[in-house]
Design a protein around this nucleic acid. Structure first.
Lengths: 343, 343
DNA sequence: GTGAAAGCGCTAACAA
DNA sequence: TTGTTAGCGCTTTCAC
């Protein structure tokens, strides 16, 4: 059932039917009703391609994941974010086009997406401090929004980010309040924007209390489980090992738990661990692992919001870019580890 | 730069240019060269929507993930599969459209995708034994391929599956060879096809050796970490607890490791654990965790193959459905657990 | 308030 | 071997 058929059935022109369906004011109420009823009855759905051709819109948003950041997909947070964005897209009539792309091909892919008119906009994932994708997209003239930020990029653009600095500042403060003085930081690669900001928060919290920053307690690598395991084992060998750890993702946190167990210690009793991008409701039972994170629902919400920002930009290209900073929730499980206050 | 412009620049008709670009035989070699050069020079990319409208194809494949199976996305296997499929799509000029959909909305979404002409085909994920989506898609007439199988569905359809039964049969055999007689099975929900097949393999291996199947050692739930933790703790309370476990996913395996540690035991020394859908190369360091799985690259390959099957079906709708059964690789780490043979 | 007709960018008969 | 022409299904001027 296409517009032509529907119009014929109604004894109206395509024009009128189109107008009625798309809420143009010049259609009489009676006609509109009639058209709506018929459309419903025959469950008419306008053909996306034809509509797109006529309007110059594709009604699709591209999510481009560099293959190097593909392990992002293992992160529960990624799924929730995508799910949130997907909801907003669906409600606004957009499709989500997912492209996993070799890093070297990224520029080509963006240019082609634009040239082929496949998408009306792009969501940029896993931004680096000085991410070249941003000026590229700006040059191409393809609307986009960044999940995260690229601190070293000066031009204005749409982004939505967790307040990573504040999150780690607060988490560090929290541990300091418990009396911890040696806190290990297991961070992501420093070129990643989030990692840089998180370290800044950690360092600032320490300096605020006049505590020296020990480079031996700060690691920055790709967030694999083995990284967590090895880093903690090594830090444990130090003359004055950490009593607490701050981790940037649940993946290395798994390795941390293993290292702690292997050392004959108990996580939550002997050693505190606070994990970002983790969520008890997702994987854990909530009883023994401390949690510091955006909750699943708030990540989902973030996805929705970024999608909304992008859609608005698409419908209104000349408006100024929008930005949004979300505060992560600090939720701490029962046994968050040793309170060293009294010792 | 569109076809019209390009044709004008070349002093040719759109038709000829189109034919030259699409490899039609009637174009002279000289013309083809000239056209190709110009297309390259102006980096001409045909507009997808226009092409789609003209050909009746959308050049996009839909992946519909029921929100209830959304935790699938946490599974590394999912990312690899999607990445593999994405490669094939890209090579064949297809886009991948991802829809996360409420279970109750699934039928509507399929129908709309078809009516709106958004996609040329669908990949069905996480099939249940008696999955209604299959006959639905067949009714609608939308080409599709299933990642997995639906054993209770009789009509022929395209699918690609791991040989789940054989995998668990071999894994169980492997443990039996080591002398284990009490083997816990932590499986997914029995309505899921893969879970049913895996249990069948496990049971068959036991019966082959005349070992009674103990229902207390068989669990079937949604694969969360907490499930793994609780199930193992409970089985450990049994008068004759398991000496080995077989797990359907890496997520509960994390909980299992925790339960084993909590019990003061060492995984790989005191207790064997074999995990499906896991991959040392991805998360672990490979030294202490036995592995039973399709490797990352083979899962990726599976994604490619299923995509190829679907694309072929789309280009050739009247041909008979294709199926493919892949054998999982059995790879076991160094310390796979106690060899009870000598005791 | 409604309709006729042009056009979005491409492909595919049909002609030449 | 190349070109002319008519669509694909929709939106959008411009007339009525």
């Amino acid at each position: 059932m296409n517009l032509k058929d529907l119009a014929a059935r109604l004894g109206l022109s395509q024009t009128t039917v189109s107008r009625a369906l798309n809420g143009y004011p010049e259609v009489s109420e009676a006609t509109r009703q009639r058209v709506a009823a018929a459309a419903e009855k025959y469950s008419y759905r306008p053909n996306t391609r034809a509509k797109g051709l006529a309007t110059g819109r594709s009604m699709a948003i591209g999510h481009v994941i560099p293959i190097s950041a593909q392990h992002e997909m293992v992160n529960p947070v990624f799924g929730d974010f995508i799910a949130g964005a997907g909801e907003t897209y669906a409600a606004a009539g957009y499709d989500m086009v997912l492209s996993l792309v070799q890093d070297s091909q990224e520029e080509r892919v963006y240019r082609e997406m634009f040239a082929k008119g496949n998408v009306d906009g792009i969501v940029v994932h896993a931004p680096e401090m000085q991410d070249p994708r941003i000026s590229l997209l700006q040059d191409i003239g393809l609307p986009f929004a960044v999940h995260g930020r690229a601190s070293d990029v000066q031009i204005p653009y749409n982004w939505l980010d967790m307040n990573n600095k504040n999150a780690f500042l607060r988490a560090t403060d929290f541990l300091l309040d418990l009396g911890h003085r040696r806190i290990g930081l297991l961070n992501g690669l420093e070129k990643m924007d989030f990692a840089h900001r998180r370290r800044t928060g950690y360092v600032e919290a320490l300096l605020n209390r006049g505590i020296a920053v020990d480079p031996q307690l700060m690691r920055s690598e790709e967030m694999t489980e083995n990284y967590g395991y090895q880093a903690v084992r090594q830090m444990m060998e130090l003359p004055d090992p950490p009593t607490a750890y701050l981790v940037s993702s649940m993946i290395p946190a798994i390795g941390i738990r293993r290292a702690i167990h292997d050392a004959g210690l108990v996580m939550g009793r002997d050693i505190s661990v606070i994990t970002h991008d983790d969520d008890l409701s997702y994987l854990r039972n909530g009883d023994d692992v401390p949690l510091f994170t955006a909750t699943r629902s708030s990540v989902r919400e973030a996805g929705q919001q970024l999608a909304r920002i992008l859609i608005e930009q698409i419908s209104n290209p000349q408006q100024a870019p929008k930005t949004k900073l979300l505060e992560a929730e600090l939720t701490v499980g029962r046994s968050t580890g040793p309170n060293l206050e009294g010792r």
